[in-house]
């Protein structure tokens, strides 16, 4: 029974476009015990990590998702006729990390921290759905408030917002930079 539960979960992940959360699996598999599900998930992850294959299960945004093995990138690109996947522009990257650390945040606040107008990079992030609008701020002008989306977590392979590099890590990087220069 346990073996098949593992297979069921594998099939659920297979049909999911967004990372499939434990809660979602639990609420789908009502006839199984939570502990059994947890064991089966661990089994499944173990299976995939010990036998490397063309696809792998990644853990992001608090869920499980299939992705291809990064080593086979070049053949996938050839198949799909894609020269390269676009990276975020430096401005967009700076904007999204500002949002990630200071969210919920308004456009004016983002621009103030970055010291440059961030309208267009915010727009491109919204289009990529890495950022979402969560409401309006109470105050003059009632500006829109932004947060990072689940897609942001998946994009950077983060489990949750608390996975972002911490104060200490950042301080360490800054120190390293100072020492090396």
């Amino acid at each position: 029974m346990k073996a098949s539960l593992k297979d069921i979960i594998e099939s659920l992940i297979f049909v999911s476009l967004e990372p499939l959360s434990f809660d979602k699996i639990k609420s789908t598999l009502t006839e199984f015990q939570d502990e059994d599900i947890q064991i089966a998930i661990n089994d499944l992850l173990e299976c995939y990590s010990t036998n490397k294959r063309g696809i792998q299960i990644i853990q992001a945004a608090g869920g499980l998702l299939f992705s291809t093995n990064p080593d086979y990138d070049i053949w996938i690109k050839r198949l799909l006729n894609i020269n390269r996947k676009n990276k975020l522009s430096p401005a967009a990257l700076e904007t999204i990390s500002t949002i990630a650390y200071y969210q919920p945040i308004t456009l004016a606040e983002i621009s103030a921290i970055r010291g440059v107008d961030s309208t267009s990079s915010l727009k491109s992030l919204l289009q990529k759905r890495l950022v979402k609008i969560v409401g309006r701020k109470k105050g003059p002008g009632r500006p829109l408030i932004y947060r990072t989306s689940n897609r942001f977590l998946t994009y950077f392979g983060l489990q949750s917002i608390s996975d972002l590099p911490s104060q200490e890590e950042i301080t360490k990087i800054l120190e390293d930079e100072k020492n090396s220069s």
């Binding site: 430096p90 700076e94 890590e169 800054l174 930079e177």
Partner: peptide, 9 residues
């Protein structure tokens, strides 16, 4: 701080 976070991201 943001700059450093950028390099990690």
């Amino acid at each position: 701080k943001i700059k450093a976070a950028c390099s990690i991201l």
